[in-house]
């Protein structure tokens, strides 16, 4: 591999890993939230943990929003291309994470805005961001084609969002951020191996390495949890790079084959979510950690195999 590529990859690995590890380390070193003695609402006792979750997802969001344009070497408005739009989606992911946390943690809003309404808003957000990034291609498609593409992007992203938010919030511990990291690695492998974009793979890699930093910290601070909203930045960040890469990847079969990559990436958190549903656990032991991460890795292996069958990676020439 060329030295310039190695240098570029290291830029996408070292800062997110260090910042993620140190920031989550500082966050985890705070004393655990005191449990209220009075029989107040469960939400009140969980509030310090929820605030820590907000800080956690802010770390992931800020690292991604800052690193993305640094790696791209460009921050253009209006975005001239779908790739330029990714920097703005990174920013939107950060804001959406804060909004999602607010919708999920402020009792009044959570009650007022029903669950179905919240998921509908999320689907509309994804479709809106996808349309924003892909507008120059969608302009040349028929309305039906455009709708099918946007609908598929929204559906797959919502599946991933639901499964990842469940996985990250159900049991505190290292496996939550680790599954998020596997999800981001899967996005990176799909971009490099099948969708011909090393740049977009790096953007996904930033999220992966930040979450790996969080996972390492969570190995010794088992109460670390990113909460429900922790899935927002990984889903919007990884989703946008995978869909943009799939949209722009050259190939003889325009869209069907490329969507396999997106579908496999979306499947990453589904296995761990089903495990938690079928065999619930209150605490995360080593067995649960291995089982959750192992199930998440299965679609990643499939992506790697598919990519290996299809093409050599861009670093091979």
């Amino acid at each position: 591999m060329e030295p310039a590529i190695i240098k570029h990859i290291l830029l996408g690995v070292v800062p997110p890993l260090l910042v993620g590890g140190i920031a989550f380390g500082l966050l985890a070193s705070r004393p655990p939230a005191p449990v209220a003695a009075s029989p107040q609402s469960a939400v009140a006792t969980d509030r310090p943990r929820a605030v820590r979750a907000l800080l956690g997802l802010a770390i992931v969001g800020v690292v991604y929003a800052v690193m993305q344009p640094i790696l791209a070497g460009r921050f253009a408005w209006p975005p001239a291309s779908a790739s330029d739009a990714l920097a703005w989606i990174a920013l939107a992911a950060l804001l959406s994470a804060a909004l999602s946390w607010t919708l999920g943690n402020i009792d009044e809003i959570r009650t007022w805005l029903g669950r179905a309404a919240r998921w509908t808003l999320r689907a509309l957000l994804i479709a809106g961001l996808a349309a924003f990034a892909a507008r120059r291609v969608l302009d040349r498609w028929t309305p039906l084609e455009a709708l099918a593409w946007l609908g598929s992007a929204a559906l797959l992203s919502i599946i991933a969002w639901y499964a990842l938010s469940r996985t990250m919030s159900r049991v505190p511990g290292a496996s939550g951020p680790a599954v998020g990291a596997v999800f981001a690695v899967a996005g990176a492998v799909a971009c490099v191996g099948g969708l011909f974009s090393l740049s977009n793979a790096q953007f996904s890699g930033v999220i992966a390495w930040t979450l790996i930093g969080a996972s390492l910290v969570a190995l010794w601070r088992r109460d670390l949890s990113l909460g429900h909203a922790g899935a927002v930045v990984p889903v919007l960040g990884v989703g946008s790079v995978v869909f943009v890469s799939a949209l722009l990847a050259p190939g003889e079969t325009p869209h069907a084959l490329r969507f396999i990559y997106a579908a496999l990436v979306a499947l990453v958190p589904v296995g761990p979510m089903l495990l938690d549903r079928l065999r619930p656990a209150q605490r995360e032991g080593l067995g649960r950690l291995i089982a959750r991460v192992g199930l998440a890795i299965l679609p990643l292996i499939a992506i790697g195999a598919l990519a290996a069958i299809n093409q050599p990676p861009p670093s091979d020439y």
Partner: peptide
């Protein structure tokens, strides 16, 4: 060539 045609 595929890489050149793609997003990068």
């Amino acid at each position: 060539d595929k890489h050149l045609r793609a997003a990068d």
